[in-house]
Amino acid sequence: MQKVILVEHDKCTGCRLCEMVCSVKHEGVSNPSRARINVIKWFMEGFDMPMICQQCMEAPCIAVCPKDALSRDEELGLVVLDYDLCIGCKMCVTACPFGGMGIDTVTNKVIKCDLCEGDPQCVRFCFPGALQYVDANVANLRRKRDAAAKLAELMSKVVVA
């Protein structure tokens, strides 16, 4: 079963710990501008949304790569970047609609989420649970349950009435 990083932005407290642990894990430094994940903040309005590679099925980054450096690993559900083939043209950065492909400010290489070989550190450190690494088949279950709970509440009122 493929696993996916599920983002539940309503649980995000905007602390940006995920950015720091991502850069430490991949580069050995704390530097959010080199992280694969970023919390996009409306700082003064109070909305936070973690943004990360969506590991698309029909990935625009794969489609535009002139050297076939990007490919899909179906077993892991992961879009893989092969640095031996990458020429650093950054077409993938242009093509990605989510900003999932980034540019490392120090090496100038393209960077993207690699799911930390199956143990994503952003998820591990997200104690509020805004980021979860779950089997694909349960990715939408919480939303379903929330919606069902509302319906259940309404129905109980109707029944009582």
């Binding site: 602390c15 710990l17 109070g46 104690f127």
Partner: peptide
């Protein structure tokens, strides 16, 4: 909801 400062897991303030 509650929010946190940088890197904090306690998130002690409400919006």
């Amino acid at each position: 909801g509650t929010v946190g400062c940088f890197g904090c897991i306690i998130h002690c303030r409400h919006r």
